[in-house]
């Protein structure tokens, strides 16, 4: 089932075009990642899907056009916390459960479940405002999920969290996927997107640049690997020229003790061996070496064009 179907959506704020003919579909049980630099239009399209904003043109179809109880099937976990700071954890959850249409009998077990699932049980009587930042974010998720929605939007869910908490968030999101939920995440963290998302969309200046599975995107747009050798005393200039001929490629760069050698993905292995052998034969002392694999970040930088600027 196409949970979300966005077709040719454009949005103007006055004269300013924020979304330019954006189209994409999100299937059931997908974790859909919306990537894009700041101001790309991620929040805007999210708002339009949620019905918080109206598109200037184009249309959005949810659950293949089923309108019944739409609001009960959708949830947003906003980036900044949204609950009553003066209410206790439990009171917040109970209130939002009630507002989201749960019957009074359903509220108690649901709240209990969410608290234990998100490790909020020990803080149930603590005022929300007194929770640490991380737990406030957990409560924020809990508040959004009181009505057990099918489609969940996470807006930059892990910003400002410590690594342990991030891991936990990821686990929880995967729990949700396992429970059959469809999830849309906007994020700036490429590792997060790569790890979590089953599908990614990359936006820039209101335009949808690419959509695809993470692997596909990396192999398609991730570009080259880079081998970096740390050589004691550095490499002589004439030797660099020789390495170029050995490898039959132009780009070999030396900076102080570091030697950068980019590779096409297919020939990596042979070339690494060749260079290593040649250097050792020449009597260079390789103190360390690493290979940098292309990842989503490279995809991002390459596609948005911002990576090129950095390399120059």
């Amino acid at each position: 089932m196409k949970v979300v179907s966005v077709k040719n959506v454009s949005k103007f704020y006055g004269q300013k075009q924020v979304l330019d003919n954006v189209s994409f579909d999100i299937e059931e049980k997908e974790i859909f990642g919306l990537l894009g630099s700041n101001g790309a239009g991620k929040s805007t399209i999210t708002s339009i899907i949620l019905g918080l904003e109206k598109q200037s043109s184009g249309n959005v179809v949810l659950f293949e056009g089923q309108k019944k109880n739409l609001k009960k099937r959708i949830a947003l976990v906003p980036q900044s916390t949204a609950f009553y700071k003066d209410f206790s954890v439990e009171k917040n959850l109970r209130f939002f459960a009630s507002v989201c249409g749960l019957k009074s009998k359903q509220i108690k077990p649901r709240v209990k479940f969410l608290m234990s699932w998100l490790s909020l049980e020990p803080f149930k009587d603590v005022k929300a405002g007194h929770l640490s930042g991380g737990y406030q974010r957990l409560l924020n998720i809990a508040c959004s999920l009181v009505h057990d929605p099918e489609l969940i939007f996470f807006d930059e869910p892990t910003v400002g969290l410590d690594p342990k908490m991030r891991q936990m968030f990821w686990l929880k999101i995967q729990d949700l996927k396992a429970a059959g939920k469809t999830i849309i995440i906007t994020t700036h963290y490429m590792d997060e997107a790569e790890k979590l998302c089953t599908k990614l969309a990359l936006m820039k200046n209101g335009k949808m640049l690419v959509i695809g599975k993470p692997r596909e995107l990396i192999s398609q747009y991730g570009g080259i690997k880079v081998m970096i050798f740390n050589i004691t005393g550095g490499v002589k200039k004439e030797d660099i020229q020789k390495i170029r001929t050995v490898l039959n490629q132009f780009t070999v760069i030396s900076r102080d003790e570091l030697l950068f050698i980019p590779f096409e993905q297919e020939h990596t292995f042979e070339k690494v061996i060749a260079v290593t052998e040649w250097l050792m034969k020449k009597g260079y002392n390789i103190s360390s070496s690493i290979t940098k694999e292309p990842n989503l970040e490279d995809v991002f930088l390459n596609i948005t064009g911002e990576g090129m600027k950095q390399q120059e």
């Binding site: 906003p78 900044s80 916390t81 949204a82 009553y84 507002v99 989201c100």
Partner: peptide, 18 residues
């Protein structure tokens, strides 16, 4: 300012009841 309005806006409860 505490974004609760946003949450209430998304909730199925009608504006009038709120």
């Amino acid at each position: 300012t505490e974004n609760v309005t946003l949450r209430l806006e998304l909730s199925p409860t009608s504006k009038f009841i709120l």
